Computed example of a mutant assay.
Amino acid sequence: MKVLLLCLKAFETMEFSVFIDIMGWARDEEKVNIKVVTCGFNKTVISTFGVPIIMDTLMDDVDVNDYDALAIPGGFQEYGFREEAFDIKTLELIRKFNSQNKPIASICVAAFALAKSGILNGKRATTYHLLNGARQKELALYEGTIVINEPIVIDGNIITSYNPQTASGVAFKLLEILSNTEKVDSIKRMMGFIE
């Protein structure tokens, strides 16, 4: 199995790294046949706080048929996250994964890319909930999006979450969809999330 980890300009490194770590633990410790492939508009993508990350592949080279799931970390609008999040290439990629009913996992404000693509129409979803819920109110303006103020919301093949703290939970939910609960619980124990 392959997870495409879409790293948009100004993504948050913590929200990115959970997918690498959790899927890596699952592969090495539980023998889950899973690989995470990083993807960006450019070979090097600069995160919110200025950390450059080298991508495995470029957006223009992605064939959705080669992947089993899509994961998108959020990022800071102030650093330009929405420039690539709202780019037509991003929106088309999201629509292609959704049209094949493949899991799409987003963290925090990455939900805006999903909403902009139209795939949240008629779906329950969440996004950043602090600052008096300003981002959730904004997300609710997208046609048909049903905003739920919960840490992680799953509706069909779509996972959304409401702040960086939920990042590991989203990655574990994606792993559970791609493997099973027993393997997730085993990895959670090994990583110290549960006793």
Results as ranks from 00 to 15, higher is better:
residue 32 V to K: 07
residue 54 I to W: 10
residue 167 A to Q: 08
residue 166 T to C: 14
residue 11 F to S: 04
residue 40 G to A: 11
residue 166 T to Q: 11
residue 110 A to E: 11
residue 117 S to L: 03
residue 90 T to S: 08
residue 192 G to N: 06
residue 191 M to E: 12
residue 98 N to A: 15
residue 136 Q to W: 04
residue 124 R to V: 06
residue 178 L to A: 00
residue 22 I to F: 11
residue 190 M to G: 14
residue 104 I to S: 07
residue 88 I to F: 10
residue 13 T to V: 15
residue 30 E to T: 13
residue 35 K to M: 03
residue 88 I to L: 13
residue 144 G to S: 11
residue 107 I to D: 05
residue 38 T to R: 00
residue 74 G to N: 11
residue 58 L to W: 02
residue 192 G to E: 06
residue 39 C to I: 00
residue 183 K to Q: 07
residue 7 C to F: 09
residue 156 G to V: 10
residue 174 L to I: 12
residue 47 S to M: 01
residue 89 K to W: 05
residue 19 F to P: 10
residue 69 A to L: 01
residue 74 G to H: 10
residue 22 I to T: 10
residue 116 K to I: 08
residue 30 E to A: 15
residue 40 G to F: 13
residue 126 T to A: 02
residue 90 T to Y: 05
residue 177 I to N: 04
residue 61 D to N: 15
residue 115 A to N: 04
residue 84 E to M: 14
residue 27 R to S: 08
residue 45 V to G: 07
residue 52 P to V: 09
residue 6 L to Y: 04
residue 156 G to H: 09
residue 99 S to A: 14
residue 136 Q to Y: 09
residue 33 N to C: 08
residue 2 K to N: 04
residue 182 E to R: 12
residue 10 A to M: 08
residue 35 K to Y: 03
residue 102 K to F: 06
residue 128 Y to D: 06
residue 2 K to D: 00
residue 169 G to E: 08
residue 194 I to L: 03
residue 3 V to Q: 01
residue 188 K to A: 03
residue 74 G to I: 10
residue 3 V to C: 01
residue 1 M to F: 04
residue 46 I to C: 09
residue 112 F to C: 02
residue 157 N to C: 11
residue 35 K to A: 00
residue 98 N to Y: 14
residue 160 T to K: 09
residue 88 I to M: 12
residue 129 H to T: 12
residue 166 T to A: 14
residue 169 G to A: 00
residue 191 M to I: 13
residue 158 I to M: 07
residue 101 N to Y: 13
residue 113 A to Q: 08
residue 124 R to F: 11
residue 42 N to G: 11
residue 150 E to R: 12
residue 58 L to C: 02
residue 188 K to F: 02
residue 49 F to E: 14
residue 44 T to W: 13
residue 132 N to P: 10
residue 48 T to K: 07
residue 58 L to S: 00
residue 8 L to W: 12
residue 183 K to H: 03
residue 157 N to E: 14
residue 63 D to M: 09
residue 77 Q to M: 13
residue 15 E to I: 03
residue 75 G to T: 08
